[in-house]
Design a protein around this nucleic acid. Sequence first.
DNA 1: AGGATCGCTCAACACTTGTAGAGTGAATTG
DNA 2: CAATTCACTCTACAAGTGTTGAGCGATCCT
Lengths: 185, 185
Amino acid sequence: MTRAAKRAATARRILEAARVEFGEHGLEGTTVRAVAQRAGVDPSLVMQHYGSKDDLFALAIRLDRDSTDDDVAEHLADVLDVRLGALPPETRALVRSMLTAPEATRTMQQFLDERVRNLARTSDDGDAELRAALTVSSILGLTIARHFLNLEALADISPRQREEVLRPWLTTVLGAEAERPPGAS
Amino acid sequence: MTRAAKRAATARRILEAARVEFGEHGLEGTTVRAVAQRAGVDPSLVMQHYGSKDDLFALAIRLDRDSTDDDVAEHLADVLDVRLGALPPETRALVRSMLTAPEATRTMQQFLDERVRNLARTSDDGDAELRAALTVSSILGLTIARHFLNLEALADISPRQREEVLRPWLTTVLGAEAERPPGAS
DNA sequence: AGGATCGCTCAACACTTGTAGAGTGAATTG
DNA sequence: CAATTCACTCTACAAGTGTTGAGCGATCCT
């Protein structure tokens, strides 16, 4: 293993450690020393690699999603498959700090606004954006309630419940934009 | 104004300042000095009144809701009337820190679990708790998206949209527990 | 009115934090 | 093989934090 490769590997180890720490304790609750210790490395090396704690954080919460086709089906798959298991560390880090770290708030805003736009694109209803936003925020709330607040009722969802309750419910939420009540202008 | 009354008034002023600061910057992002300055008071007075920053925080996030009858109608009223305006400071403080401050996380868990139980009580469905949890987390997500992330699509909701989109949508979400698909045991 | 009480401020401490710079030992290069 | 580069550690510092105890001036009791 060449010297540059070893250095790159160390850098990745630091970044991953940072994601875990940020994901568990947030930006303010995480110390550079804690990240360094988890990575098995000296604190100052973290700085040499990433410049500052804030720069490291900005990198740690990047989602790097391939935002090509972002439709209802993908949403469903996301929620049902991915988010029922463990959340990836960068997502945990982003969500964990989204209410307290301005950088994370901005990133989350952009991420959600984009999903809302993509979702609203499928309809030409004037209120499509609003309906899409309701859908997206529902999924956000579900994610938080399950993975960060550990709501009792969401703790253990059986495969039966996933198919009989969660999937129909999500379909309802997602499809709500199609069933608008009569009386619109 | 008696001396004790003046002291009590100062205490309330400090607590209110704390709610605003905590609500805006979270537990870790708020300094005792900032609270004191907002209250127009010396930092050490804050300690004399509330013992420690953590004790003050615990008090600042208390909701003191009269949890007698917590039903669907109340939920709707909450979301449509209260939460469309500004959130009360103690609610802001609680929500802001719920992902980063363990004390706030616990408080939020208990608050939501209670609402879920109360909501599930109205049905004898075996999955009532799960459905109630989906409802509650939807509302949580909506609150966060609107009041903390300022999602574009949720920024300005006209009265028309409230009545034509938001209310029917919420009714759907809330009522989803009644419309379960056929084929349950 | 005079002494005690008390709400409040001032000054300071102990600690943790992010961060910088010198140093070290091994890998690399000629 | 000698010189150099470089990934990494050690030591230290300056700033900001929660928290404390002494002191001060106005208000209350007798």
